[in-house]
Design a protein around this nucleic acid. Structure first.
Lengths: 333, 333
DNA sequence: GTTAGCACTCGGTACAATCGAGTGCTAGCG
DNA sequence: CGCTAGCACTCGATTGTACCGAGTGCTAAC
């Protein structure tokens, strides 16, 4: 463990480095004024912190830069429950007061909000479709051999699948199939296999069959809804264009992003730093995540992706507040 | 107008520059072998082309770089109908043969396809919601004071609006309101104002009113569906991270992107080069657009955004093929 | 009209000198 | 015994200089 003074110095290095992106030297730490010791003393402590693995020197005659271990200690032991600027807090509250519209739209806007708050890229993962129950099912004819299966789930998600048939289908057949589907599925979670008794009408039975196949089969394949906002901010966070490209490439792969956040949460973390993130292209990135709950049940995840030299206190505070308010807002409906 | 040799030389400069990103000198042009003249002759021609505004020299002792006028001439007069590599063509055909799923999903995948084909950022704009007619309307209760208005349009688009009520609402009232809405709206284009005769039942009438307000009011505000794929490719196209940031910022603003493509199309162009694009942050970018038609009617737009030194022939060919096949695929259903 | 030849320009590279931020170490001080 | 002033040292960054070479424009000859 680190004594008080070492901890203070480590904190100073991390905070300075996060602000300036420059290796931090002993004199700069003394200039901050918190510590009433000489640069030489600080240097001794820095040497110890380096030996212990909290800091590194890019080269002999440079200041110190935090290692992942350094950031980790900062986040775990040195970060007070960060407070958001009151104005930012206000922005969040107003956002959720005025938010409206379809679920997807709201989640997309939330990712923008979070990105604007933190100036990093933000990820919002919607509620999983599995756990909701079916409220309404309908087959809507779009053409002679074409219909749209629309299912409304209890959490407001609308699932739709286009269906194509071998033979022409009348509206009455669609209606009959819709009725059978509705009674069979209503109140049940989607994704569970369901058997619907045959009617004897071959056309209707085949419609019902097609619809169930479409609902069930596609299921695991279908991604959760993911919204990435402010990816452009990554271009401000790094000065190597190649790094930017790699990170953006990751952020474009929804499946990867979802898995990433889920993994971090599963490890019980709310912050993953550098290699902890578990992705080669993101070794220069940190991820801050938080789940949100709708009506007391875990529903989805939000997170931000930024450089390892991230403003952790603000980031944590922003993610915490937004996840809480988003959950509350979605619980209202 | 340019004589044959000047045109050939201009073409050589543009093609070389697009490939190498390096200013092109007289010797490099001669090395290509198409022309049987000496470097000195080429230099004379280059000087003329520069005087005419087709080329510039970054500095005195450098080769030439095309100006916007140079690219413009190249695109208008020197680009044969570009052919896609047969393999790429095959990829497109297979993609649309196997494509399936909801409209949004298909459009998003299409933007990926186009981005992969060209290695630039791709934009796919979905069919506008206005011109489709309503096929089905339904109010689905999600809670005592909460319902979801789901409207299926003839082109497969599903519009949904959450509704919140002052008072608790029974399922029978929702059903009654749904029935009235269905008869009033079926077959009509969404967005047109509609009056529904009162029933006398205050609750049902208020439900119907709320639903119509939600459908109508929000309308102009609601953006078209836009899908941007492969934005990360912009990081490979430019080496200044600030340029990348600016371009990405634009690409994140769906409204701006839609307007941009629309403007270009309205000017009757299929390619906009540099400042022609009409956006300060995109002066180093070119845009290639094409509309696509569903059942003979103009439906949406696709496009790509890349650096001015874009591989125009391939880009044009890819956009043309994809727009055609996308239109055809959507016409099927 | 074309081209060989040539003087000229100027960005890029290589190298040395210098600067300075920052270090580790030692010796002395309270 | 911990702290600190002082100092020699390191090494990246900056500056200056020389040079190279790609590329030019011009002129004169073919």
């Amino acid at each position: 463990m680190l004594d008080d003074r070492k901890a203070s110095i480590l904190r100073a290095v991390v905070e300075e480095y996060i602000e300036s992106a420059q290796p931090v030297g002993s004199s700069r730490i003394v200039e901050r004024g918190r510590l009433n010791v000489s640069p030489a003393t600080v240097r001794n402590e820095l040497a110890v912190l380096e030996r212990e693995g909290y800091l590194v020197q890019p080269h002999t005659s440079a200041g110190r830069v935090p290692t992942e271990k350094g950031y980790r200690f900062f986040v775990d032991a040195l970060t007070p429950q960060g407070r958001l600027h009151p104005q930012q807090r206000q922005t969040v509250l107003e956002f959720f007061d005025h938010s409206h519209g379809a679920l997807e739209h709201m989640l997309a806007e939330t990712s923008r909000l979070l990105s604007d708050l933190t100036s990093y890229a933000a990820v919002v993962i919607g509620p999983p479709h599995e756990q909701a129950t079916v409220r309404s099912v309908q087959l809507v004819g779009l053409g002679p051999r074409l219909a749209l299966l629309v299912a409304v789930l209890s959490n407001g998600v609308v699932e739709k699948r286009p269906l194509e048939f071998e033979t022409d289908t009348g509206d009455d057949n669609l209606a009959a199939a819709t009725a059978r589907l509705a009674t069979a599925l209503a109140g049940r979670p989607v994704g569970l296999p369901v058997t619907v008794p045959k009617t004897g009408d071959a056309v209707v039975d085949s419609l019902v069959g097609d619809a169930l196949t479409a609902l069930g089969g596609d299921h695991s394949n279908e991604p959760d809804s993911v919204f990435v906002g402010g990816a452009s901010r990554m271009a401000a966070a790094f000065d190597a264009v190649e790094t930017v490209r790699q990170v953006l490439t990751i952020l474009e792969q929804q499946y990867v992003v979802v898995t990433l956040l889920r993994d971090v949460l599963d490890r019980g973390l709310s912050v993953a730093i550098g290699t902890e993130v578990g992705h080669e292209s993101l070794t220069e990135c940190s991820v801050v995540v938080a789940p949100y709950e709708v009506e007391g049940e875990p529903a989805g995840t939000i997170g931000i992706v930024g450089p390892t030299r991230m403003k952790y206190p603000q980031a944590l505070a922003a993610v915490a507040l937004v996840s809480q308010r988003l959950g509350r807002r979605l619980s209202e409906g």
